[in-house]
């Protein structure tokens, strides 16, 4: 139907494959997010630390440069598990902050004005909807977490030689697994909590609040009960335990690795259940 004709005409053309339609929602969501200057600036800021790490790796392999900087002993601490553990800490924290800022924008605008029935009355499932939102979040978080992490590892391998890469390949695995696990967890947490609060600001505060509340409650339980079991609800301690195990660095956290994995798995399952309960075309009042 042409605009000037002003009469309705059906559609008899070709259709796109259903398997890739979830990317449409991710694309529109990305375009909306990128209109925000704050998000663009935040993403740029998130690249500062990887750039600093890159400079460090360059300096560590460049004695002339170190000499010019007058570093005592002419050597920097080695690029090892500790170095990448610190990298995971910084970038992981930034990933959590960005999730708290952007996940409410992804989901609350659909919930606030009842747009969900419009998605689900089409050949588009709830799983695809959540998949689209997760794809967008994971894509954005990957840009400044595990992707630059692996690039740093590759650069260090290039400068230190093939033998170093072979003996330290567990670092690459640790960076990838540790950060992917983390961004999946925070993305699920961000979406699940945002799905239950219609106001963006409140949803963002809730996502941040869970982080601090978990740490606070965990410490309180430990103090009152005189145990160490409260640590399992402290998300920071849980992920630090996993990172320190994967990157073979003793961070001094008194939590069994298995417990940390179980705690993280439980958090993810709870988030999926929360999403399944909330992301639906309409509410059934029994």
């Amino acid at each position: 139907m042409a605009v000037y004709k002003r009469s309705y005409k059906g559609y008899t053309g070709v259709l796109t494959p259903p398997s890739s339609r979830f990317l449409i929602l991710a694309r529109y969501g990305y375009a909306r997010l990128m209109r925000s200057k704050f998000v663009v600036i935040f993403l740029a800021v998130c690249m500062f630390y990887p750039l600093a790490c890159l400079t460090y790796i360059y300096a560590a392999h460049n004695p002339a440069f170190l000499a010019r900087l007058s570093i005592p002993g002419g050597r920097l601490p080695p690029v090892d598990g500790r170095f990448f553990y610190l990298y995971c800490n910084v970038q992981g924290a930034l990933a959590y902050l960005l999730t708290a800022f952007i996940s409410p924008a992804l989901i609350t605008s659909d919930l606030a004005n009842g747009a969900l029935p419009l998605y689900f009355c089409r050949p588009f499932s709830r799983r695809e909807y959540v998949g689209a939102k997760l794809t967008l979040l994971l894509g954005l978080l990957s840009i400044f977490t595990w992707i630059p992490g692996l690039l740093l590892f590759a650069i260090e391998s290039n400068l230190s030689g093939w033998a170093w890469m072979q003996t330290h390949f567990w670092i690459a695995t640790g960076i990838f697994v540790g950060l992917v696990i983390w961004i999946v967890t925070v993305a699920l947490l961000g979406l699940a909590l945002s799905a239950w609060v219609k106001w963006k600001l409140a949803a963002g505060a809730l996502v941040l609040g869970v982080f601090f509340a978990g740490a606070g409650f965990g410490a309180a339980i430990n103090e009152v009960m005189r145990t160490n079991t409260g640590t399992v609800i402290d998300l920071t301690q849980v992920i630090h335990t996993i990172w320190s195990d994967l990157l073979r660095y003793d961070a001094g956290i008194d939590m069994p690795v298995t417990t940390a994995w179980i705690a993280l798995g439980t958090i993810c399952v709870i988030c999926i259940l929360l999403l399944a309960r909330r992301v639906r075309a309409f509410e059934v009042v029994k």
Partner: peptide
Amino acid sequence: RALVGYMPENDAFVAE
């Protein structure tokens, strides 16, 4: 759902 178009009763839009 591929054959149907649905106009719900309540508000249904993305405000932004």
